[in-house]
Design a protein around this nucleic acid. Structure first.
Lengths: 133, 133
DNA sequence: CGGGATCCGGCTTGATACTG
DNA sequence: CAGTATCAAGCCGGATCCCG
């Protein structure tokens, strides 16, 4: 509990993700989680319905998508708009806050996608140097 | 736009994180994973030794930190420099690629931290509207 | 100090089935 | 279409012991 560590950049901010108990850690996980990140990314282009989203986020199950959307809606990043028609129609879209989060997330995602050649090359080097094979 | 089949933004890119089989998805998970994100964030300020890192990333176990560092090193985002002294000293630092990734990640992290008041307020609203009380 | 190896409990996840 | 309920499996992650 010493305060001797001066390297922390956020020690004076109200919320510090590096602290175990900080609620920002939970929200960050909703945002960056496997399905959270892809869901936010998909919604960045515009609102989507449940099954559209499901098709777009390849591999997500109904349960996980539903769960992910609930968490993001609860955090105020996604807005759910249900129309009481038959058959039911529900649109999901980013809130203004969610849009800012998703923008930063997409910057990261696109950079990672664009770096995959380097990453894959690094992996090969890594595996080769320590796998005697 | 709004032609449903044309909405995918990355369909022409070599790597598309929305596709289930794309290796970028794995790397993104290393980067945005619970400990990966915090590790990269911590290293953004400068190189750190194993136990410094462990103290900085509050709550991480030795095993998970070790595992996380291996994954990031393998992906070419972190460089490990071991000095054969006694006691051993090992420094971890970001590679140039890792720096760019961490920068974008920190932009997201800081924004989330700075939005926590809004997020927490949204949660209360959400919980209240569907509370059984 | 800087880890690796192992055991193991439990939370997360993924089918499947069912509903409005 | 848009989800919820249930259940089994499996992987994550912590605790512990070990070594160089």
């Amino acid at each position: 509990m010493t305060r001797t560590d001066q390297r922390t950049p956020d020690q004076d901010l109200p919320y510090n993700v590096f602290a175990k108990a900080c609620p920002s850690r939970g929200t960050l996980e909703h945002v960056t989680g496997r399905w959270g990140a892809l869901t936010l990314g998909a919604l960045y282009e515009g609102s989507l319905r449940f099954n559209e989203l499901r098709r777009r986020v390849d591999g997500v199950s109904e349960k996980m998508l539903s769960q992910t959307l609930h968490a993001l809606e609860r955090d105020g990043l996604v807005h759910r708009e249900a129309q009481p028609t038959n058959p039911p129609r529900v649109d999901y879209e980013l809130t203004p806050l969610g849009r800012e989060v998703a923008g930063r997330l997409l910057s990261l995602i696109r950079f990672v996608e664009g770096s995959m050649d380097d990453v894959l090359a690094a992996r090969e080097r890594y595996d080769e140097t320590r796998a005697t094979a």
